[in-house]
Amino acid sequence: MLHTVNKSPFDTHDLHNCARFVDAGDVLLLLEDGVYAAQAGTVQSHLVADMISRCAVYALQADLAARGISDLIPGVALADYDKFVDLVEQHKVQAWL
């Protein structure tokens, strides 16, 4: 299953709430304001750092670039929209809106 999270972890608990439903083999994609969760060294970085041990974590490149985020938590992979489509091809989707 592909979980998408589009909110800042400083604003909502969506990433936190999503985490308990992530299963082995699942993938997390951070997009829109969700990519703030991928930034290293913040008080919310532990959320993504903890998830990386359980599932693949991607952050949408266009959204990182738009927000000027470059210092990513180690293990976060970059995804362009083509990769987003590949992930949807491989997994059913749950959007944590």
Partner: peptide, 18 residues
């Protein structure tokens, strides 16, 4: 429970988020 819901979620053909 969370475990039951996680299993149910993963059995779906599609999930509609509202």
């Amino acid at each position: 429970t969370t475990d039951e819901l996680r299993v149910l979620m993963h059995q779906q053909d599609s999930i509609l988020s509202s």
